[in-house]
Structures are given as C-alpha cells and as structure tokens.
Design a binder for these strands. Sequence first.
RNA 1: GGGUAGAUGGCAGAGUGGUCAAUUGCACCAGACUGUAAAUCUGGCCUCUUCGGAGUUCGGGGGUUCGAAUCCCUCUCUACCCA
Length: 369
Amino acid sequence: MPFSFKLQHQDETARAGLLATPHGDIATPVFMPVGTQATVKGLTPEMVRSVGAQIILGNTYHLALRPGDELIRDLGGLHRFMHWDRPILTDSGGFQVFSLASQAKITDEGAKFRSHIDGSPLELTPEKAVEIQQNLGSDIAMVLDECPPAQSDPAVMRNAVRRSILWAGRCQRHHSRAEQALFAIVQGGLDVGLRAECAHELVAMEFPGYALGGFSVGEAPEQMHAALPACAALLPEAKPRYLMGVGRPQDLLVGVAAGIDMFDCVMPTRNGRNALAFTYDGPLRLRNAKHRRDPGPLASDCDCYCCANFSRAYLHHLFAAEEMLGPTLLSLHNIAYYLRLMADARQAIAEKRFAAFHRGCLARWQSDS
RNA sequence: GGGUAGAUGGCAGAGUGGUCAAUUGCACCAGACUGUAAAUCUGGCCUCUUCGGAGUUCGGGGGUUCGAAUCCCUCUCUACCCA
C-alpha cells in the first residue's frame, strides 16, 4: 500500500495524523509550500527542505504549458526534474479555470484556455489533467474541478458542483497509476447544503482524499471561517482533508480547528517576495522605514537561517536596494514560520490543548507587533 | 572682460499667456496580496481641510495683462564658448 492515512490524535474536531506516500510520510496538519512551475520561487530545494517542508505543490496547467509534461516524464519525472525527493502534490489546473477565467471557456467537456504565455489555444479536460499529472509523477494528484468566484449566483454555483462531480468521475475512471493518489474536490461556495450534496456524491466514489475547493475566492475571511466546520465535517473522518489555497496564519488555525489536515497557499512566498514577513507577533512589512536601523532579527523565537543571521535593518536594506536575496530570505522565513505553526499545532493537538494554542496565537497576532 | 544657453516641486525633466498645484520618471511614505499570468499591484507625496474645497508656489525684485511658470526690465547664480 503506497498510500495511507492514519489518524493519531484528536482534540475536539482538530486532528493530527500521518499520511504515507511513495516519497515519504507526512505529519498532519501540514502546510505545503507552493512550487507552481517546478520551483518554490526564490528557494533551492535544500532551503525548502531545511525548514522542514514535507511536501510541496506543482501545477498541471503551468507545467503542461512549459516545459511540457511529456518532457518532464522523459527526463525522469517531476521529482528528479526539480531535484525534490519528498512528496509532491499537483494541482489539476482547476484553479486556473478561476484565475484565468477571462480567457477560458468552460463546457462539460473541459476548459478551453488561451495560453497566458503566447495566447495559443489549449484545452484541459478531466482526462488530460489526469494524464498530465501521471506524466509528472506526483504523489498526490487532484481532479479537475470548476472553481467559480465567490460572488457567482446560485445557478452558476450549482452548475459548477454538477460539473465538478462529473469531472471527478471521469478523472477517477481515467486514472491508472496505483502509486499516485487522486483526491476529489468539493465545491459549492458558502452554501453548506450545496457543499453537502457535492460531498455526498464524491464520498460515494471512494477517493483516497478529499479537498475543499472554492474558498478564498473573493468571500470575506469570516464567511469562510463560519462555513469551514460544517464543510470539513462533510468529509470522511478516516481520509485526509485538504483545504485548497488557504491561507493566512489565522485561516490555517481555523481550518485545523475544523478538522482540516492539509493546506497550501502562495502567501508565504508571494508576500515574502513583496517584503512581508509573518511572525507569531503578527506581520512585519520590511519595506517600512521603521526597520531601517533595527538590529534585531525578524523573529527572536525563530531559528531559520534568516532569523539566525540577519537583522531587520539588513532585510530592509535588501528590499530598498531590490536585491534578490531579500525575497529569498523572507520566503524562507515565511515558509519556516508556516511550517512551525503547523508543527506547533500538531503538538498542541497531541497534548489536547489546541483551543488554548489557537487563542494564544490570536492574542499575539492582535496585539501590536 | 565679452558672448551664448539656462535657473520649474527631494532629484531628473516636461510645460513656454488661461483647461497648471503644474505631464512623466526616480526617490520617499503607506497599503494590498489566500489551489502563483505577481521579485507584483494600489494609493499618497507644497500647506491647511468639516475632503466639497481653501491658501501659498515654478531663482530674487519690479512691470505688462482681465489673467503669467510662460511676455518685458533688472538683479543674482550656473554651464559652455571667446579673451
């Protein structure tokens, strides 16, 4: 059995577990850094590994477009291609249905895109999404789904759910690699009833893992927070639950409390590139003038390479001078912070004090940083 | 000593009678970023403001004009050329 999930601790609805994959075990709840184009932007795999990343993401759409999934397959698969020997999860391109909607046309057959690189037409069907991910050789593949914006009207939402279920079935039937797990994605927006219908259908199909998609797509964070417990509860307890694309540190903890096991988000790397550092004392904008002469580290309680060696003043300087080391160091720190937050959450769950941990984090974030 | 060209907001640099509190870039200040078309984007950047406006600006002084950063006189300064 190359793939399994075992729950180890539960603390109210929060859980900690162990996810086994062909490239290694993953302790959950886990944060997965995003490496869309076969790289976690700005970092070498050694750096990503050094802060304890257990699994990272890659993207079907981007890699199929460039350099091409067959090329990656011929060069030994995504792990070897990008020099990452731990687990990889690939997203299906479903999110690009949302983020590139202006140049996509969606039918039951699939999504027709225009390449964001050169405008050339290309089509992503459920079958194609599976083939691409099988060529990439990821440990976990995602079904193609339709991810509508939060403010879409109910008819659009219902249709997206119908289509996502349809596509999930086609993905499952087309999927043939036993060493790769294929996860389903529940859509339905903020309508818990619709989410329940979607989850019911998908759960009946017996996927090895389930994701909640269609969050953080324009709704207020509080709306997502309010919907998460009920939505997470729709997913099988014995299988990994993945909240796609979320989020800020406070969102992750709400997710963990609701019983989510896996998260991914571009925020630590993108915001890091844009000079924002996450810490237990709240965010820090390193471009701000107040850091110009500050000899202290980003976070005194962080042991990452950035915090161990560099001052806020130096980081401020790097961003002022637009040196590429700035984005690299903050990306590294932010990932280290996200991973530590999850590690601390796991420990709190194991010790049955997650609620207190959660409250403590909120109190520190809300007090002035 | 003579000649020529200039002097515009922190800097560079547009504008050359009204639509100019003055294009643009840089610098500076702040904000945003959630399955990455993002090392990106947005806002602010003379003073005050009840955010509707109001008041002072384009080297100094004087003048022409209903009206001047823009025209005239003069002074100061700068660059280059000739002695």
